[in-house]
Each structure stands twice: as structure tokens, then as C-alpha cells.
Amino acid sequence: MTEGNFVDYIKIYASSGKGGRGSMHLHREKFVAKGGPDGGDGGRGGHVIVRGDKNMWTLFHLKFKRHFRAEHGGDGGSSRSTGSDGADIIIPVPLGTIFRDADTDQVLFEVTEDGEDVILLEGGKGGKGNWHFKSPTNQTPRYAQPGLEGQEGWYRIELKVLADVGLVGFPNAGKSTLLSVITAAKPKIADYAFTTLKPNLGIVEYRNHQSFVMADIPGIIEGASEGKGLGHYFLRHIERNSVLLFLVAADSDDIKKEYEILLNELRKHNPELLDKQRLLAISKSDMLDEELKEEISQDLPEGVDSVFISSVAQQGLMELKDKVWKMLN
């Protein structure tokens, strides 16, 4: 999937159908001079339904169609025949999608199950036909209910990537390179900061045909939680990962300090992120000899397991997968 096709934020307009009118028909046939009321009810308006689809990874399909209108219900007819219901409109979305009211910013619901249907807007109820209003004192009512109006509104849709492992690190820490080496994903790789502008997902093959999903999330900078760099734009994707894999380059001035900055940005964005399992990987470690690795190990942050890896030289990758698999299971 190319970067331009990954859409994780969109605004749409939706309106449900109006209910059909009830009928005011009076029964007429040969030899029945004054038949009673037999007007049928109106059909209900179509719902706007959101459906979870596990085969979707992006909101790209909503980029060029942002208005969704369900059909109106049919009007009631004679002989108590009910009008047809308006056709529902279904909006398929990837799992991990959140719907917000665009005006109030309130979270309405979240779609996390495949095939899960959530009614975003209910269609208007059909009006009752005149036969409902017949009474001993009014045997030929010449009125029926109009259908109820449908609902409408603007909604903000956000996708939070569902992945087992999220790669967290500064720009240029080697996250995209790692993803390209241990999965079949083809993220954009270059030697400048913020090469990755959208999360990339890849499936990591493990022993015995098992696998897990890894997400390369755009690089974090100090102040990201206040919106600096790409700020909130990507921090929300980290909220869904079971394991956070921190990547710090071996040539960093201070590995411990970088790790603390990353941790602090996550804490400021959402303190609950610190409850997740964490693993620290020292990338680009093919430039280190055993003596240097030993020296660096003495000064690594406490309370987090660590592993030395090199994506280019393919060193330590199996050990990394083993540690991640153990954490996931």
C-alpha cells in the first residue's frame, strides 16, 4: 500500500431516510357504498449503518465519497398495504475506527469486530394510515400521520491502526528499514527525518508458520504530544499496540536520554500507554564490537528488556522476534 493511499482521518456527511406518509384511503368497491378507512402505514426510512471489515486497512475509499444518504420510506396504500422501507446505506470501515460528532467532538462509538453493524443514524418511522384512527364516534377519519423526518449530521472518522507491535523512535532510528527486512512491507526509506508520514503495517513471519502484525509509526520528536512535528497525528496509532518496541540508534549521543524523551512524550499524550509491555532495540549495532556493546549495556535504562540488532547486517533479528513473541503470548 503506498503512502498516499493510507488515509486515517476523514470527515463525512450522513443522512437517514424520512418515513413514508400514512394513507387516507377509504374502502370503495361495488355494492359497498361506504366502506371504512383502509389506508396503510408508511414504510420506515433507511438507516445509515457502519460495518466493520477486517480486510480493510485504510479510510481511502471514503476520500472521494463523503456524502451518504439513505432512501426515504414509501407511502402507505389502500387495503391497509404498508409502504416499502427505504434501503439502508452501509459504510464499510476498517477495524479500529472511531466515529465522533464533528460539532461536539464527542466519541459516539468504535468498531472493533469484523461484520459488526452499528446504526449511525436511524431512519424516520413511517406514519400510521387512517384505519388506525377509526372509532365508534369517528368511523371515517380523513387524516393519517406523516412520516417522521430522518436524521443528519457531520461526522469525523479516525482510524487507530490495529497492530500487535508498534515501532516507537526518533526520525531516522531505522524503523522503516527494520520493517522492510522482517516483513514484506515496502515502506519509503531515505536518510532524512520524517521519511515516513503515515503508519506502515507489515506481517512478521515467525516459527511454525505463526505471525504477528508490526506497525512502523512516524518518528516522534520532543514536543510531539503538544502537536510538534506530526504530533497527535500519529501518537493515536500507538494506543492500539500490545507491545511497544522502542528503537534507538547505536550512534545516538545518549541512548538512555532518548528512551526517556520517547517515554515522556507517550506519558504526556496518554499515561495509559506506559502500562503496555516495552522492549528496547538498539538499531544499527553492526557498527559496534563486543566491547562497545558491553559498555553500552551498562548504561541502558532500567526496567526494560533490550536487544542489539542490525537490520542491514540482519543481526539479532531472530532474538528480537523471540522476545516479541514471548511478550505477545
Results as ranks from 00 to 15, higher is better:
Leu279Ser: 12
Gly223Tyr: 09
Glu222Pro: 02
Leu262Gln: 07
Gln277Cys: 09
Asp254Tyr: 07
Glu205Val: 10
Ile203Ala: 13
Phe246Lys: 09
Ser242Thr: 14
Val243Gly: 06
Leu262Thr: 05
Ile203Met: 14
Ala281Tyr: 01
Ser285Lys: 02
Glu205Ser: 15
Ser242Glu: 15
Gln277Met: 15
Val213Lys: 10
Ala215Met: 00
Glu265Val: 07
Tyr233Lys: 15
Val243Asp: 05
Gly223Cys: 10
Ser242Trp: 04
Gln277Leu: 14
Leu263Pro: 00
Ile220Ala: 03
His269Leu: 06
Ala249Phe: 04
Val213Ala: 09
Gly227Asn: 11
Asp253Phe: 11
Ser211Asn: 12
His237Ser: 05
Ala281Ser: 13
Asp254Cys: 14
Ala250Glu: 06
Phe212Ser: 00
Gln210Gly: 09
Arg267His: 14
Gly219Asn: 02
Leu247Glu: 06
Arg236Asp: 12
Lys276Gly: 11
Leu201Gly: 01
Lys256Thr: 11
Met214Ala: 10
Gly229Tyr: 08
Asn241Leu: 07
Lys228Gly: 03
Leu247Phe: 07
Asp289Gly: 02
Glu260His: 12
Lys257His: 13
Leu266Lys: 00
Asp275Asn: 15
Asp289Cys: 04
Glu226Leu: 12
Asp289Ala: 03
Lys257Gly: 06
Arg236Gln: 14
Glu205Thr: 14
Glu258His: 13
Arg267Tyr: 15
Asn270Glu: 13
Leu266Pro: 00
Glu239Ile: 09
Ile255Thr: 01
Arg207Tyr: 13
Pro199Tyr: 04
Val243Ala: 09
Phe246Arg: 08
Ser285Gly: 05
Leu230His: 07
Asn270Lys: 14
Gly231Val: 09
Glu258Gln: 14
Leu262Pro: 04
Asp251Asn: 15
Leu247Asn: 09
His269Phe: 15
His209Phe: 13
Lys228Asn: 13
Val213Met: 11
Asn208Ala: 11
His232Ala: 13
Asp275Leu: 13
Asn270Ile: 10
Ala215Asn: 00
Glu239Trp: 03
Leu263Gln: 13
Leu235Gln: 05
Ser285Ile: 01
Asp216Ser: 05
Ile238Lys: 00
His232Leu: 14
Pro218Arg: 01
Ala250Asn: 06
